[in-house]
Design a protein around this nucleic acid. Structure first.
Lengths: 226, 226
DNA sequence: ACCTGAACACCGTTCAAGT
DNA sequence: ACCTGAACACCGTTCAAGT
């Protein structure tokens, strides 16, 4: 048996000059989506690329720069609905749904955003579109700005809430533990909570439908009187 | 000069048996509030307590258990408004404000909650109170559950948004960089954004007032028709 | 220019030992 | 029971060196 060749490296070296920022970002997003932010490590990233850890530093200044680039790239993939339907409210709802969908599909991207301070321009085309629609719906300049921020805040909060719950629920026997905790609650101290526990659990099991509830309410409150 | 006594330790040792879970949690919250989650380290925590790093492990299983205890403790400090005013909507608003206030005062607690999966019972007395008020306001069981979750999602999202912005804004020259980026935006591609930039910045500078905008809208949408 | 491996200063935690 | 210091397996990143 020849000794010149290693027995079998776990992942053969990538050929020289095959590494580039795009491949790195692809791998980073895959890693984040499949294993979460905890597994998002410079060493793990490099290993998935079949490259030494420090090779990545030839294309990015460091982990923070990669995180920013990942966030930027994902925010740019938000799909906007076709314009000019004549129904700004329906279009607005579609834009919000698009943002929510992205965060649901890439929960770790959301977590990344909550950890790092704002750096890149956050999905400017989405912001522009929403502001235009809010103005079109009849809001004043100040009202439109406030409504846009409120809608984004709700969307982020909703996606984050569901992500957190999903992570907790996929743990071993999490469902039973929640059930046990609720059953142990003193009925006389928390009557409403004990009574509505089934509805509370059910409502949170379908993140998308729950998001619509708040979105409808928020839109109604923001645009309703107009 | 005597050699038996060390020259001057940076922080003298705490006397034996003076350490307990409460002192540890106090120190942890102080550390989180003053220096953020990045500085929240077992070594830093122990140092602030004037104790060896491993002493903390005599009272908590590890960092995760401390994080859970911190979150639990803070959530329990949410102030609830007096009951029985006969105006469930106003009371509801006060409860939400209380939750928002807590997260604004302890931004790192919120960050902690977003990082770790749910474990402790999340402020059950707040949940019970809100559900009772929503029922009192005339919502069905299912509606009340959905409304409660929507309100919490918005509140969390709003506080998180402001925290992120505050952290970004206290960086050196952050304000100027934002301004420069906006000025560099092509007016013809993002007309609404460029035009409303001043309102957008102003609205986000007052987190509390901005929170009220979305809260009003959400409550109106959830309860308005009743 | 691109990539490597060793090394450095961190981190949470285990462990054997001290009181 | 409470606390300690050394040690282990990680982490991001610097650095000198290789191609």
């Amino acid at each position: 048996m020849s000794v010149t060749q290693p027995v079998r490296s776990p992942r053969r070296r990538a050929p020289r000059n095959s590494l580039n920022p795009d491949r790195i970002l692809d791998a980073a997003i895959r890693l984040l989506d499949r294993q979460g932010t905890e597994a998002f490590t410079m060493r793990a990233l490099a290993q998935q690329l079949g490259v030494g850890t420090m090779a990545v530093y030839s294309h990015f200044r460091g982990k923070d720069e990669i995180s920013d680039a990942v966030a930027h790239r994902l925010l740019d993939t938000i799909e906007l609905p076709p314009a000019g339907s004549g129904d700004p409210r329906a279009e607005l709802r579609e834009v919000c749904r698009g943002v929510y969908r992205l965060f649901s599909e890439h929960p770790s991207a959301l977590q990344l955003l909550t950890m790092r301070p704002v750096r890149g321009d956050d999905a400017i085309s989405v912001v522009d579109r929403m502001l235009a629609l809010l103005r079109e719906a009849g809001l004043s300049r100040t009202e439109a700005a406030g409504a846009h921020v409120a809608l984004m805040q709700y969307t982020v909060g909703s996606a984050l809430w569901c992500t957190r719950r999903a992570r907790a629920m996929c743990e071993e026997g999490a469902r039973d533990r929640v059930r046990a905790k609720i059953d142990a609650l003193p009925r006389d101290r928390y009557p409403a909570l004990v009574s509505l526990a089934p509805e509370l659990l059910r409502v949170q099991d379908n993140g998308g439908a729950q998001y619509e509830i708040g979105l409808d309410a928020m839109l109604e409150g923001l645009l309703g009187g107009i």
